[in-house]
Amino acid sequence: MFPGFRMLDVATSGTTIRLRTGGSGPPLLLLHGYPQTHVLWHKIAPRLSQRFTVVAADLRGYGDSGKPETSQDHAPYSKRAMAQDMAEVMTALGHDSFFVCGHDRGARVSHRLALDHADRVKKLAVLDIAPTREMYRDTTDAFARAYWHWFFLITPAPFPERMIGADPDSYWLKKCGAGSAGLTPFTEAALNDYLRCFRDPRTIHASCEDYRAAAAIDIAHDDADGTRKLNCPLLVLWGQNGVIEKCFDALALWRERAADVRGQALPGGHYLAEELPDLVAAELERFF
């Protein structure tokens, strides 16, 4: 799925990160969402590698990256810890400054990466999210029903872990097939990789911890930022058939958190890079 790319495991101070890298040109870090892996990018990474040195990584807790033990405050799965992994990965690969694009959970990590390492992230693109703190703050009945997993996954361990672990394939297929496009965005090869990784009980637990951190320590970190905003250019893309479009004003919310924001809805659902790969690739090429 990634012709010409190398697969590497990079040790960070907190875990080990599995990634693929390929191409030449300015470095571009791609981060996936829940409950997927870096394979999310397989439809656009080869095209982007013609103009960029692409790094597609598994977040800690996901895919074939390490799954460190958690703590009572969920700090090992905070976006700060996940972002630190990626900063160290890019250093290990020799990239002092770089572009970042993240989808879903990976976009939340990307947001924190651009805040905590502002001198290194030159531009940031986020796919189908609004800022975490503001989404919780502005929760409505419609949002809670559509993103029920946000509130299920943050319940104390091991309740959601046991529920999901009883039939992880059915859970994954129901969760990811619930959007307007169903399961059609996913190729057989990608789907097999997602399910292989998600069947690991450690992945299920780590992904729950990701959400628990988002509802707790991540918001504390956001609050500690005060009025500080992202100072790099930010591109926001979301699906016009998805929950962000229906429940939030994405550009308005991002302007609460960033100084230089532009973006638009695209004619698809949540999984934009797999549903609309050519359109997403073109938007990223134009922006970066």
Rank of each mutant, 00 (worst) to 15 (best):
31 L>H: 04
35 P>F: 09
42 H>Q: 09
43 K>R: 15
44 I>L: 14
44 I>S: 09
44 I>Y: 13
47 R>C: 06
47 R>E: 13
47 R>A: 15
49 S>C: 13
50 Q>V: 04
52 F>Y: 14
55 V>F: 11
57 A>D: 07
58 D>F: 13
58 D>V: 11
59 L>G: 04
60 R>K: 10
60 R>G: 14
61 G>D: 05
62 Y>V: 08
62 Y>H: 12
62 Y>E: 03
63 G>D: 09
63 G>W: 05
69 E>Y: 10
69 E>F: 15
70 T>G: 15
71 S>N: 01
72 Q>N: 11
73 D>V: 06
73 D>C: 09
74 H>K: 04
78 S>Q: 13
78 S>E: 13
79 K>A: 11
79 K>C: 11
80 R>S: 04
80 R>Y: 03
80 R>E: 00
82 M>E: 11
85 D>F: 02
86 M>I: 04
87 A>L: 01
90 M>Y: 00
90 M>Q: 02
91 T>F: 06
92 A>W: 00
94 G>D: 02
95 H>K: 05
95 H>T: 08
96 D>S: 14
96 D>G: 12
97 S>C: 13
97 S>R: 15
97 S>A: 12
100 V>K: 02
100 V>C: 11
103 H>F: 10
106 G>H: 02
108 R>P: 09
108 R>N: 11
108 R>V: 06
109 V>H: 04
109 V>P: 14
110 S>L: 00
112 R>L: 04
113 L>H: 02
113 L>G: 08
116 D>H: 00
116 D>G: 06
116 D>S: 02
118 A>C: 08
120 R>C: 10
122 K>L: 07
122 K>I: 03
122 K>W: 02
123 K>I: 09
126 V>W: 03
127 L>I: 04
127 L>R: 07
127 L>N: 01
127 L>H: 09
128 D>R: 01
129 I>Q: 00
132 T>S: 14
133 R>V: 07
133 R>Q: 11
134 E>G: 04
134 E>I: 12
135 M>E: 10
138 D>W: 01
138 D>R: 08
139 T>E: 10
141 D>F: 08
142 A>P: 09
143 F>T: 08
144 A>P: 03
145 R>D: 14
145 R>E: 14
146 A>S: 12
147 Y>G: 01
148 W>Y: 15
149 H>Q: 07
151 F>A: 04
152 F>C: 06
152 F>L: 10
154 I>H: 05
157 A>I: 02
158 P>L: 01
160 P>C: 13
161 E>F: 09
162 R>W: 11
162 R>Q: 12
164 I>C: 09
165 G>S: 08
166 A>P: 00
167 D>Y: 04
167 D>C: 07
167 D>S: 13
168 P>H: 13
